[in-house]
Nucleic acid binder design. Structure first.
Length: 165
DNA sequence: GCCAACGTTGGC
DNA sequence: GCCAACGTTGGC
């Protein structure tokens, strides 16, 4: 199982929006960067765990946890002229972009601010904190995952939550 | 609103 | 294939 960090602007789609979505599930679409696309297409798998990151807000930071429930598949929003993610160079038999489905797992009691992450020596190597990094999907190591869950100050154990169907 | 960093585009 | 111009991201 792998760990990821995915960015979303909470004004557009927040962790609460995910929690309130039907079944707590939503499509993670609109990724329009080839490096991120390739990760969604080739590496992100069902069961992978996701740090849900709020970007372009005050303060930015990690808001909680989601889980991948559908691996990469062609992103339908690329074909929708009404969508802000419409891509005129995609066609039904050649969609250039990929998306995954995720499900809400856990909302941290308090958002972990980006600034807090920056102050952690343990996280120095995180791609998120590298200067100039703009990827909206990036891998997270097990060690970084565990450390960040420790910062969350919740009793969330990182094990699969009970599911009622 | 600014700007650093990076990606994309397109002329050549 | 180079590279300048332009666009986007996203923290500040």
């Amino acid at each position: 199982m792998n760990y990821w960090l995915m960015k979303s602007e909470p004004d557009e789609f927040s962790i609460d929006d995910l929690a309130n979505a039907p079944g707590g599930k939503a499509r993670w679409d609109g990724v329009r960067n080839y490096q991120a696309r390739n990760m969604l297409r080739d590496q992100v798998a069902v069961g992978d765990q996701v740090l849900f990151y709020h970007s372009s807000c005050q303060p930015p930071g990690v808001a909680g946890i989601a889980e991948v429930v559908a691996a990469g598949y062609p992103d339908p929003s690329a074909l929708d002229p009404e969508s802000p993610y419409f891509d005129s160079r995609s066609s039904p038999d050649n969609i250039r972009w990929y998306c995954v489905d995720v499900r809400f797992v856990h909302r941290f009691p308090a958002l972990i601010p980006l600034e807090r992450l920056r102050h952690s020596v343990e996280l120095e190597a995180m791609p998120l904190l590298r200067r100039g990094n703009r990827l909206s999907v990036m891998p997270v190591s097990k060690a970084h995952w565990d450390f960040i869950l420790g910062l969350a100050g919740s009793d969330y154990s990182g094990t699969a939550p009970g599911r009622t169907g």
